Amino acid sequence: MLVAFNKPMNVLSQFTDEGRWPGLSRFGLPKGVYAAGRLDRDSEGLLLLTDDGRLQARIAQPKAKMPKTYLALVEGTPDAAALGALRRGVALKDGPTRPAEVEQVAAPDWLWPRDPPVRLRKTVPEAWLELTITEGRNRQVRRMCAHVGLPVLRLVRTAIGPYALGDLPPGRWREEDARA
């Protein structure tokens, strides 16, 4: 079984609650599934869960190089140098990243409001980037963007390999055909 879940902001990618942060057990997910990879508490969007260990490994293992696509609201104005650095890969403390596909995109009109809302400053511009990476280090997209001077204000994963978030509302899930 493979389940696509739209993880809301401030929800953990584990079934147990931790402190004031709720876990996945509150969302009526099928018994026996577990996360294939993770999303940080302060990130939103597509989280895949499965009861198949081999499928979980194909989705989550960095050596599988399964692409993961994100929308990132960043503080600042992306320039050619910043986008070029992301496309080439950047040197983080834990080593260089693989090159990312990245484009500046229009603000998505389909995206749900975030709870709590993003604090935007009127004097600081912001922009949306669509990034696709093929590894999944801890807070990688946030660290890559910060490295090029574009701190992430909101991060939403929209796809993992052939699986897309689509119109799945936050806190809801659906079964997927396991085609990875």
Rank of each mutant, 00 (worst) to 15 (best):
V3L: 11
E176C: 13
D17V: 08
D79P: 01
Q14T: 13
R139P: 05
R172I: 09
A72T: 12
R26Q: 13
R38L: 03
G23Q: 13
M144E: 15
V33T: 14
R98F: 08
G149L: 10
D42E: 15
V141P: 01
G23L: 01
C145Q: 03
T69Y: 05
L165K: 01
Q104V: 14
L92F: 03
E135F: 00
P162W: 11
E101P: 00
L39F: 01
P22N: 10
P169M: 07
D177K: 09
N138P: 01
G149M: 07
P113D: 15
L120C: 07
T123W: 04
P125A: 15
P125W: 12
L47G: 00
M1T: 12
R88A: 14
E175T: 11
G149R: 03
P8A: 10
L168N: 10
V141E: 12
V105R: 01
R157S: 12
R179G: 10
T16F: 04
L12P: 00
A35W: 00
N10S: 10
P162T: 11
N10K: 06
M1N: 09
G89I: 05
A178T: 01
P170Y: 08
E176G: 06
T69W: 07
P151L: 09
L39N: 00
P99G: 15
R119G: 03
M1W: 02
T123C: 06
P22E: 15
G161H: 04
A106P: 03
A72G: 09
V156F: 06
G89M: 09
L153M: 12
G89L: 11
D109I: 08
A100H: 03
V33R: 00
D52E: 14
V141Q: 02
D79Y: 02
D109K: 02
G149P: 02
D79G: 08
E44G: 07
G28P: 05
R119Y: 01
Q56N: 13
R174T: 14
R87E: 15
F15M: 07
A57E: 13
T97G: 07
D79T: 10
I133H: 05
K93M: 12
R119P: 02
T77W: 03
A85K: 08
P30H: 04
L46P: 05
L29H: 04
V102G: 05
P117M: 00
K68P: 07
R119C: 01
F15A: 10
L168G: 08
L47Q: 00
R58G: 07
N138W: 05
V141L: 11
H147Q: 10
Q104H: 02
Y70L: 15
D79F: 03
D177N: 08
V152A: 10
W112N: 04
R174P: 04
D40A: 04
R119D: 13
G45D: 14
W21N: 10
E101N: 06
A91L: 14
T69H: 06
E101Q: 13
L55F: 05
A164L: 12
G76H: 08
S43I: 14
G32N: 09
D109F: 02
K68C: 11
K68N: 07
E175L: 11
L29W: 02
E176M: 13
P99A: 13
L29R: 03
E175R: 07
D52R: 00
W173S: 00
Q61A: 15
V118P: 00
A57Y: 09
L2W: 04
S43G: 08
A100D: 12
P125S: 14
R137L: 10
D79I: 04
